[in-house]
Amino acid sequence: MTVGDRLPELVKPPIERIQLVKYAGASGDWNRIHVEEGFATAAGYPSVFAHGMLSMAFLGQLLSDWVGGARVRRLAVRFKAITWPGDVITCRGEVTGLGTEGPEGEAGSERLAEVRVWAETQKGTITAEGTATVAV
């Protein structure tokens, strides 16, 4: 693994409204804006839209597909654009740094990779981007 390596990309199936209901239930985020069409349109949106945290979960999957489960030490994301039903989200990443220092509070050291990650729609709009530290 070297700096500049690209992660295998993750292409998710098109976002369906039922996925937003499932994510609301699984996460406990029941903001009606994500699940009730009338609530979303009354608020001025064309339709319901995905939880930002769903995109962040996709970025989490990008990382765990790459390095395995339980290896993401830190993940920080900024939400840039709304994800709509029907959008096809592709997650990508790039290694930006390598080190061996262990995170604070953990015995011993481990090899860590710093990664830049982002999610984009089929139109190339970046919906979420951020950085992660993963054990490799």
Partner: peptide, 19 residues
């Protein structure tokens, strides 16, 4: 007002994995 709320940023830092 939950209809005017958006998620701007989020960060998780794990000191150990969750099982």
């Amino acid at each position: 007002d939950w209809s005017k709320l958006l998620h701007g940023e989020q960060e998780f830092t794990h000191l150990r994995p969750l099982y």
